[in-house]
């Protein structure tokens, strides 16, 4: 019972810290960053030409970025995947990939905010149909739900 009480106290403390930190976060003074626009969604079949891990947004963890060359047209897209994607998904240069995401361009560069990635016989859904992120944390977390693959 004592252990349960300690656990409950630790949980309350952790939740409180999280809430306090949330309140302390200052509002961003800059113009809003690119957002997921379902109206500009497109599907690109391509080949991964490079893999980067770099900062994209203020106050956000670095993103896994794929440099994708579209098959047929040769156009090159910067594909934003997710912050945790660097740890949870293994992509390789030369890998054939189909990516569905929100398109925008800036300074003559083409960008895609990924929603769904099909590669290596797997489907990675990093956002839902409305563009809301599905990702969570890093490599240490996973669902506990019982037997399965």
């Amino acid at each position: 019972m004592k252990r349960t009480a300690c656990l409950a106290a630790a949980w309350v403390l952790a939740t409180g810290l999280a809430a306090a930190a949330q309140k302390a976060e200052p509002p961003s003074p800059k113009s809003p960053p690119p957002f997921y626009n379902v109206d500009t969604e497109r599907r690109i079949d391509g080949v991964i030409r490079d893999i980067l891990f770099e900062s994209r947004y203020e106050s956000a963890p670095p993103f896994l970025v794929l440099i994708l060359e579209e098959r047929g047209t040769g156009r090159v897209y910067n594909v934003e995947v997710s912050p945790a994607g660097f740890f949870t998904q293994d992509f390789h240069k030369g890998e054939r990939t189909r990516i569905t995401g929100s398109f925008y361009s800036r300074d003559s560069e083409l960008f895609l905010i990924a929603r769904e990635i099909r590669a290596g016989g797997e489907i990675f859904r990093v956002r839902d149909r409305k563009g809301f992120p599905n990702w969570r944390g890093g490599g240490g977390k996973g669902k506990r739900r019982g037997r399965g693959m």
Binding site: A14, L17, Q22, S59, A60, P61, K143
Partner: peptide
């Protein structure tokens, strides 16, 4: 089940 996370760069809080 539920899981919740909140990012406070470079940290994030999570609970399940």
């Amino acid at each position: 089940a539920f899981s919740y996370d909140k990012a406070f760069t470079p940290f994030s809080f999570f609970t399940e």
